[in-house]
Lab assay of single mutants.
Amino acid sequence: MSIQHFRVALIPFFAAFCLPVFAHPETLVKVKDAEDQLGARVGYIELDLNSGKILESFRPEERFPMMSTFKVLLCGAVLSRVDAGQEQLGRRIHYSQNDLVEYSPVTEKHLTDGMTVRELCSAAITMSDNTAANLLLTTIGGPKELTAFLHNMGDHVTRLDRWEPELNEAIPNDERDTTMPAAMATTLRKLLTGELLTLASRQQLIDWMEADKVAGPLLRSALPAGWFIADKSGAGERGSRGIIAALGPDGKPSRIVVIYTTGSQATMDERNRQIAEIGASLIKHW
């Protein structure tokens, strides 16, 4: 067993022997301040990774656009098919120029040779490549099948209805392509620590998230040296922004954090800054 596999296998073990965790309302004060600064709703939840206990939450059962955070769930569904012998990570998928959609920095470079399922998941999570996500959605049967996968996990809230990039439209009061912070946090925890996926697939999923290259201005910008984070960000229309993450000190994750916002007129930089400040408060009061 590799060191990384050992780390993920012992996530519940280490967490069980940690000192009790206590909620700190100071972080919620910052979440509410972010709402004021952005002029928009902000949803927040913080779960203990081992027990699933909610440590703090704000608007945990209000719907927010998922945006690209759905790509972690998508690759979880792909990995479940791999575990069941219905898919192979090494299978190569070929596609054409007509398949390319807006923001496809990886797939646009491989029109000639195609990409493997493993490479597509890596591109979808680490670079948020939209064509990679659409190609992977095709392998599982489309958005409705991802929703069905989530329902089978016990998540009857999260739903995907459309493809990239239309799913980022974020129309107010439109339930399409949305989740709730509580539902997303619980589902992410199941994917990373539950028995739904094999140990190898859980490790692969967290490795992809740990290698995320496009979430630097968010929670990662607030992390002290030595902290662990595996995350996936999302951005959408109407001032929408979000991030889902597993993080913790001492090089291992111990909490799940989900943050979503929508309806702001603020710039992307300002949305990023507010999420980073929430992260800084979380870490300060850990």
Rank of each mutant, 00 (worst) to 15 (best):
E119M: 06
A16Q: 12
T116W: 02
D207T: 12
A200C: 10
R159C: 06
P20F: 03
M153K: 08
V78R: 00
H94R: 13
A123L: 03
V106A: 10
T198K: 13
Y260L: 10
A230S: 06
T262C: 10
M1H: 01
N98I: 13
K284T: 15
M127H: 08
C75R: 00
P253W: 07
L199C: 15
V78E: 03
A211K: 13
L167V: 14
D83K: 04
R238S: 11
N130W: 00
I278N: 00
R92P: 08
L28S: 08
S201C: 07
P165M: 07
L73A: 11
I243Q: 03
L247C: 07
S2V: 08
V78L: 09
L135Q: 07
T112Y: 15
T186A: 14
I45C: 14
P65I: 03
D250G: 13
A245R: 00
L218E: 02
E164R: 01
P249E: 08
G248W: 02
G85P: 01
T187P: 00
F149R: 07
I11P: 05
K213S: 10
F228L: 06
L223S: 06
A148W: 09
S201Y: 05
G194E: 14
R162A: 06
E237R: 13
C75N: 02
R159E: 06
A183F: 08
P20K: 14
P249M: 08
D33F: 15
N134V: 04
H151A: 14
H24E: 12
I259V: 14
P249T: 07
E62H: 08
D155N: 06
L135A: 06
E26Q: 10
L192Q: 04
G85Q: 10
F228A: 09
Q274G: 09
D177C: 03
A34R: 02
E26L: 15
N98Y: 14
H151G: 12
V21R: 05
D83H: 04
E35R: 03
A266C: 13
G239K: 02
K190T: 14
T186L: 15
R159H: 12
S240M: 03
S201G: 09
I45M: 12
A15S: 15
H94K: 14
R92W: 09
Q97D: 13
A230L: 05
N168M: 06
F58R: 09
K252F: 10
G76I: 05
T267F: 07
A211N: 12
D174E: 08
